[in-house]
């Protein structure tokens, strides 16, 4: 593949098997492939890939620092900030760095140029290699609640060519949007349970709003009921693959093993999924 193709693996509900799918897909490519672990609150692809980490870089966002000798407490910064990270009540502004999204608006709007921006570290981006897989992972600092800037830093290290697999965080909130935006195709991993279906419906709404072509992978197929399959059929959502509810997969996972290695009979399943994704991403 000469042109870069980006495939995101996401899910509404957590714990449905995003990382299992992402890691096993990457391991099935058999040529250089990049895996971006964007689940920066708990990156876990490395537990299976066990890469040798070659680089570790600190990622910071700019947060305001107020020069009180210049400030006349006009409150412009406070009125601008949607996150209440800088607050002025006819007083010198108070800054709450952990709420700051690093947009820089306060520094720009300040008529007296009393605000300058200081770098506040929020996490690290690590790059490593495991066989044919180039892993880039973000690791958010403990207590830092601002995942999207770190996710963007992980994605900034994506190669322009070849296949790039993005392991997204669970849910439908800002970190997920940051992870899946700009991807060519998106896989929603779900499980055939009421919780899985409930969160799948939310995730489908999100992906449709983002206008990213997508399909569903049903993990632990056979454990629940057919409501997830019926939902996909009614919504014209392709079910790209079903991974059976096999206790041996859970055992391999629990030991930190890659399924296609521990259980070679699943190689063809992931090869089929990979082929389906490549075809779908090409069609766009």
């Amino acid at each position: 593949m000469s042109e870069g193709v980006r495939i995101a693996i996401a899910s509404g509900k957590g714990g449905t098997g995003k990382t299992t799918v992402a890691v096993n897909l990457a391991w099935s490519v058999h040529e250089p492939v990049q895996l971006l672990d964007c689940d920066v609150e708990e990156p876990n692809a490395h537990l299976f890939l066990r890469p040798e980490i070659q680089r570790s870089e600190t990622v910071s966002i700019p947060v305001p620092e107020v020069d009180e000798s210049r400030c006349d407490a006009c409150g412009e910064c406070s009125r601008l900030c949607a996150w209440h990270a800088i607050v002025s009540l006819k007083t010198r502004p108070l800054v709450f760095p952990d709420l700051c999204h690093g947009c820089g608006g306060c520094a720009r709007i300040c008529p007296l140029e009393a605000i300058r921006e200081m770098d506040r570290p929020i996490g690290t981006v690590e790059t490593g290699v495991s066989g044919p897989v180039n892993l880039v992972q973000g690791r958010l600092n403990i207590g830092a609640p601002m995942a999207p800037p770190l996710i963007r830093a992980v994605k900034a290290r994506a190669h322009g060519s070849g296949l790039v697999i993005v392991d997204a965080p669970p849910g439908t909130s800002c970190p997920v949007i940051a992870a899946v935006r700009d991807c060519d195709f998106l896989v929603l991993v779900t499980e055939p349970t009421p919780f899985g279906l409930h969160d799948l419906v939310l995730a489908v709404d999100m992906v449709r709003e983002l206008r990213i072509p997508f399909g569903v992978v049903i993990n632990r197929a056979g454990m629940g009921d057919d409501r997830t399959a019926v939902f996909c059929r009614n919504q014209n959502i392709p079910i790209l693959q079903e991974i059976p509810d096999d206790r041996r997969i859970a055992e391999a996972y629990a030991r930190g093993r890659i399924v296609v290695e521990a259980l070679p009979e699943y190689q063809s399943l992931f090869q089929q999924l990979l082929a389906a994704l490549r075809a779908a991403a090409k069609k766009g």
């Binding site: 406070s78 996150w83 209440h84 990270a85 607050v87 009540l89 709450f96 709420l99 609640p145």
Partner: peptide, 14 residues
Amino acid sequence: AQGAGIQAAETVAR
């Protein structure tokens, strides 16, 4: 999601 206390404090002060 976040910042409720700060905003509530602003509301009460204003």
